[in-house]
């Protein structure tokens, strides 16, 4: 159930980034979040690069939730 909850959360957060509901997030989508989140464009690009696995320019829901999972893992570890 932890994993289901995590996936649900990942999907909701993914939707916040994928405003046009394309099904993926581009670097441009990420850069646009700069107006809503307290992060710089450079930081958002760094987030995109660290979440993206295959360097195809798209961040998929799977890659996104894997990143969130890793983050939650780090949080629990601390």
């Amino acid at each position: 159930t932890m994993q289901v909850e995590m996936l649900e959360k990942a999907r909701e957060l993914f939707r916040l980034c994928d405003k046009e509901e394309k099904g993926f997030i581009t670097k441009l989508d990420m850069q646009r979040l700069q107006s809503e989140l307290p992060l710089t464009t450079e930081q958002l690009e760094a987030v995109f690069d660290s979440l993206e696995q295959d360097n195809n320019g798209y961040l998929t829901p799977v890659e996104f939730s894997m990143g969130l999972g890793k983050f939650i893992g780090i949080e629990q570890y601390q």
């Binding site: 957060l13 760094a46 987030v47 983050f71």
Partner: peptide
């Protein structure tokens, strides 16, 4: 080594990103 520096900061940036998104989500109705 710039690549090492990037690795060290990325966790913090990632945490900042997800925390911001999470608080944004909970903040909206």
């Amino acid at each position: 080594d710039p690549s090492m520096k990037a690795g060290a900061t990325s966790e913090g940036v990632l945490a900042n990103f997800f925390n911001s998104l999470l608080s944004k989500k909970t903040g909206s109705p």
